[in-house]
């Protein structure tokens, strides 16, 4: 494209010189932070109320989101899932809001840059092994050795390759889906800027939610694999 792509971030003085994926990521994070702080303050104010408010308020909405997230996580990981609600929920909200921000004109989703998606997937990668060591101690390394000591020179490279493939596939999948979707939407918008991009944008909505869900499911599978006590 010949001209500079317009984003809302170019209007904000501090964010003007940052690359678009960073500035848009910051804007989305600030929006998330505001939502969290407002929800927390409302929760504090109405702490001793037992009966929920009759109509849908902001606080109900926040509670709905948190309950849905923790429900999915506990459903998938079992009772120990509660330890991971903070991490997986944060990643899910960050990714979901970033994906959805791509549908708002003037926003480039931060997740359509490899740096953002790999930041998320590397967090999952590091935390997986952190939880593994926390759960098993040094014995966690036994998971890499395989069933027999004699086979360990064969099994260790295989395991290492398998473990490196996980964050790579997480990051590449999210990046590819969001980039592709954003690109298709913008191309259709360039061709016919009326009604025609609507089905593609609907597809984008679908992709944004599904990719968030996939990221959550896979990172939960990796976490539960690291803390499980069964033979691998």
């Amino acid at each position: 494209m010949g001209h500079e792509v317009f984003t809302w971030a170019t209007l904000i003085p501090f964010l003007k010189h940052l690359p678009p994926h960073v500035s848009n990521g910051i804007i989305v994070s600030v929006i998330l932070l505001v939502i969290v702080i407002l929800g927390y303050r409302q929760l504090k104010r109405t702490e001793d109320e037992i009966i929920p408010e009759p109509k849908l308020t902001f606080r109900n909405l926040v509670e709905l989101i948190v309950e849905a997230l923790s429900g999915i996580i506990v459903d998938t990981m079992g009772p120990r899932g509660k330890e991971f609600v903070l991490l997986v929920g944060t990643l899910a909200l960050f990714i979901l809001f970033n994906n959805l921000s791509g549908l708002v004109p003037g926003f480039l989703p931060a997740t359509d840059n490899v740096n953002t998606t790999f930041a998320c997937s590397l967090t999952v990668f590091v935390m997986t092994h952190y939880y593994g060591f926390k759960e098993h101690g040094v014995k966690y390394l036994k998971q890499f050795v395989g069933p027999m000591w004699a086979l360990s020179p064969l099994m260790i490279p295989v395991e290492i390759i398998g473990h490196i493939a996980r964050p790579l596939s997480l990051g590449v999948r999210l990046f590819g889906n969001i980039t592709g979707d954003h690109l298709v939407t913008s191309i259709f918008f360039g061709l016919v800027p009326f009604l025609v991009p609507l089905p593609v944008m609907f597809l984008g909505l679908f992709v944004a939610v599904v990719q968030t869900f996939v990221f959550m499911l896979l990172s939960m599978a990796y976490f539960s694999g690291a803390i499980s006590h069964e033979e691998h």
């Binding site: 493939a165 996980r166 999948r173 996939v214 896979l218 599978a221």
Partner: peptide, 9 residues
């Protein structure tokens, strides 16, 4: 969704 990730991995 879980198994669709298999190919890429």
């Amino acid at each position: 969704l879980n198994y669709s990730s298999l190919g890429l991995e």
